[in-house]
Amino acid sequence: MRITQKNLQRTYLSGLNRNLKQLSESNERLNTGRRFSRVSQNVTDAQRALKVRDQLRRNEQYATNVSNIQVELHAQETKTMQIHDLLQDVKELVVKGYSDTNSATDKKIIANEIASIRESMLQIINSKTTDRHTFATVRNESPMTVNEHNEVFFYGASVDQNDTSAFLNQRISMNVGTQMDLSTSALDILGHGTTPEGTPKNILRLLSSIEQELTQNESTHRQAYMSQLDDASNQMLMKVTDIGARNSYLERTLSRLQDENLSLTTQQNHLESIDFEEEVIFNKSFEMAWQISLQLGSKVLPQSIFDFMR
């Protein structure tokens, strides 16, 4: 093949250009720390990296949701325990109250004490954690209200009803990958309905009935009321257990999410970030290739026959 000056020049320039391009691509990777800044530079890895990012963002939000639910559950648990503690005090008072050694006046005093504890219970059940009523369901209002006749209403519906569907007692949940209950209903804590014998199941109603009996110095329902109190106390403990179970489920979810994110972050690094040591070595060799091509430049147009003609 006949080699002309232009051939040499073109080959040289295209080689030089290639070396410079490699160097500049490597520089870009070093500057950004990324293996690619456009999908087209590495389609398969970019596609996977985009998926990993989605999953990471989603998991982070789930983790936030878990923490939010945990704050609510913690408040619910503490307050339920407070009500339960009050209930233990009430039980002692009720035993004392029904005791025949007490005078009618004493019984009245005890009834008043019970009434004030009942008032505390009502306050706790209607209290707020930050801006949310702790035991609310669908409405952010005081869930339990008591009228002047000591009748108790859950969002306006009398708690004496047995029919569950009469109440706004839906559960509020949040999405932590699965649906997780956020709310604990005041109705579930304090109970509702009436036994066939006419004993109210709602603790507030029960306590006011007991107060009434004590005030009137009667003890007709003593047995029924006492056993209902025990039942209510057990119910409440079950609720606490339920909250505890939810909490530990959330703990597990959180640690699973954290583990997942750790491995996702590792994957992300692997997919998106460059190996600096490796890239620096490549960069050096690209730079050297470029410099050598530059040095070669002075020799590309070599001497010709004209340098030797006299």
């Binding site: 093949m1 006949r2 080699i3 002309t4 000056q5 232009k6 051939n7 073109r10 080959t11 010709s304 026959i305 004209f306």
Partner: peptide, 14 residues
């Protein structure tokens, strides 16, 4: 192809 074309049509100083 350009290489080949040059090889035929290009000027060689030698």
């Amino acid at each position: 192809i350009e290489h080949r074309r040059d090889s035929i049509s290009g000027v060689s100083l030698d």
